[in-house]
Nucleic acid binder design. Structure first.
Lengths: 375, 375
DNA sequence: GTGAAAGCGCTAACAC
DNA sequence: GTGTTAGCGCTTTCAC
């Protein structure tokens, strides 16, 4: 009836004793074979395997976990959303976890969920996991940082500050600010005097990191830092932002914190009569699948989700299996800027054939980032 | 060091006996309290809860599963992809599963994975789950249909034929063909003589269902069935298809099997000098978040992922907890066509200065479904 | 190399 | 209403 993990007496499930009996060995030997322990003769091993095969034996994980204290599973806490970034990262994690031989337990949090991350981790601990991956892109409301939950398994925090207390805390997926900086510099290198920023919701680490990188790029070159427009990752919010930015004739380049917003932004700009890229250059972030096919094809930054997941998990599993050992060192971030058609030099530098020269139709260049034309 | 599910002797983990001792009751009573069993006096219940709280007690799930034969978890087999459809469905499932009080175990399959769905289910069975959700949008290579794996837990198959053998097999998420049919009829109703179809990869059920719906709509009205162009869901493949279709002057309406392909298609059409929607109307499928913000805003069909997940899981949990009972009946599909600006009557019926007259390329009216209608 | 005994922490059945 | 007694199917420890 029900699957045979037991259920009282008279269960139909095949147990290791059954295999042992058929193979003519002790139950312990069966256990040895299935755990790849040494000291089992080749002959015995094959007899056991045959018997198991014939009986359709499969180990009972509950019993294993009970006896050993290890579940061979890893839990992941993630935000329940189909947004490209988080979803891609989760896929990466799932793929990799399976390769490591661990099972995956997923718990979603939801924006506005009162229990939130702490609740999710609690439920994971409840289920019993050997390690936890926190891929939670947003801050808890009202949290200063530290999660108060006391953990006793290693934790891998992806793309966020390591705000937990655990026997071992690893991080992965940093370097987002560097990517944002590169995107901004690309615009600056094209000759734009400054770059506007359409940011993501500030509760998201990713949004803040991207903003930081943008600022850093501008600051490093002594440029103006124009006011930030904040969106909510959606194309709709990008569209709204675009209507605002279109009114400011001084805007020649925008770095949007994700591709969806960039697409909405471009639409609003176009509707307002500001051509992209001729009048305004736009850079996105993520490189979503359609990015190359919208009009104009979007220049954007690709995030290395799989690489981050792979490296992080490798280090987490290492920590699980070698509790005493030094954690494996992280590797540096890589930046992957994809230049397409949505970015070109600013109108001013394209006026006359002499392309480096800026004729300054407006906003004469002031030596060191003086007040600019925009608002 | 390791979490205290017990690890031999000397474990630091709090056990139910410890709670019992502190509360001055028997261990079984603690068990009763935590299982919400009746016949525990309010007074005892509170004492137990207090003691548990003080000790930081948490039930050991491995022991529970071993003793009861139930893991209180549900497994889901899904294709490892960040594609909007599958990812959204998975999110829906996760959300709902958690609400039901079950834990979720996810196993991804990968296109081209030799083990495939059978392997995934096997691993789930190995882990021990009380029920399985198969949200696997594609056929196994070389499989006629039936998966040979013998299951002994109830199964919910989403958006696919019920090709497994299990004590109870439920399905959910049908009606995709109806949605496709509605999309096609929308185009026909606008006056197009026929509708071309940009299909998804034929290994996907969803692709075949959408094609069937398209055919049904055409057949029902006695229209020509033009040759199908097949893509791979990506905007890139839509672009390729668009180049092909652009050469055929007779094409006035295309139903694309998903929004990504529709976007690529529109781009190719536009580049080839065929305006959308003036020359060619395009309908997509999915209603991805950017659909309302591309140019032109895309008419599409929204899939009720959450509703499907919710209803399916409700029925699965019912089947798990009432093995003997009749399965809950499924409810009918709903169709949600979102009409935006990418579809208009064909050129022939707009000969005279109707509204489609293209005066300006910018600031087109956004009929309903424009930015504000997004959600 | 292999086996016997002793739990892991809980739930199930039944007694009181 | 509550306690007692047996396992669930493994891993662990230690003996041989």
């Amino acid at each position: 009836m029900t699957r045979g993990t037991g259920r009282g007496a008279g269960s139909a499930a095949v147990r290791s004793v059954d295999v042992a009996r058929l193979a003519g060995v002790s139950q312990k030997t069966v256990s040895r074979v299935f755990n790849d322990e040494p000291y089992v003769s080749a002959d015995v091993r094959r007899r056991v395997l045959d018997a198991a095969e014939r009986l359709g034996y499969r180990r009972n994980n509950a019993a294993r976990a009970l006896a050993s204290g290890r579940t061979h599973s890893i839990g992941v806490v993630t935000l329940g959303t189909a947004l490209y970034g988080p979803a891609s990262l989760l896929m990466g994690v799932e793929r990799v976890v399976r390769d490591t031989g661990y099972a995956l337990r997923v718990v979603n949090t939801m924006e506005g969920d009162p229990a939130g991350v702490a609740g999710a981790m609690d439920s994971l601990l409840d289920q019993g996991v050997d390690g936890i991956v926190i891929s939670e892109p947003i801050d808890e409301q009202g949290h200063g940082g530290e999660l108060s939950l006391r953990l006793d398994v290693p934790v891998l925090v992806i793309a966020a500050p390591p705000s937990v207390t655990a026997p071992m805390v690893l991080t992965a997926g940093g370097g987002v600010d560097l990517m944002a900086r590169t995107a901004t510099e690309h615009l600056l290198d094209l000759g734009h005097l400054t770059v506007h920023h359409l940011a993501g919701p500030q509760r998201w680490y990713a949004a803040r990191d991207r903003m930081k990188g943008w600022q850093a790029a501008l600051t490093a070159q002594g440029r103006d830092i124009p006011p930030v427009v904040v969106g909510d990752w959606s194309a709709a919010s990008g569209y709204e932002a675009g209507r605002q930015l279109a009114e400011d004739g001084g805007v020649t380049a925008v770095f949007a914190a994700n591709d969806d917003m960039a697409i909405g932004l471009i639409r609003a700009l176009t509707e307002a009569g500001r051509r992209v890229p001729e009048d305004v250059s736009v850079v996105g972030f993520d490189d979503i699948p359609v990015a190359a096919y919208v009009t104009p094809p979007l220049t954007t930054v690709r995030q290395p989700f799989d690489a981050v997941a792979q490296e992080g998990l490798k280090r987490l599993v290492h920590a699980i299996e070698n509790p005493q050992a030094e954690p494996l060192p992280p590797s540096g971030p890589t930046v992957d800027l994809i230049v397409r058609a949505s970015t070109v030099p600013p109108p001013s530098s394209r006026k006359t054939p002499a392309r480096g020269r800026r004729t300054a139709s407006r906003a004469p260049t002031l030596p060191d980032g003086g007040p600019s034309a925009d608002r």
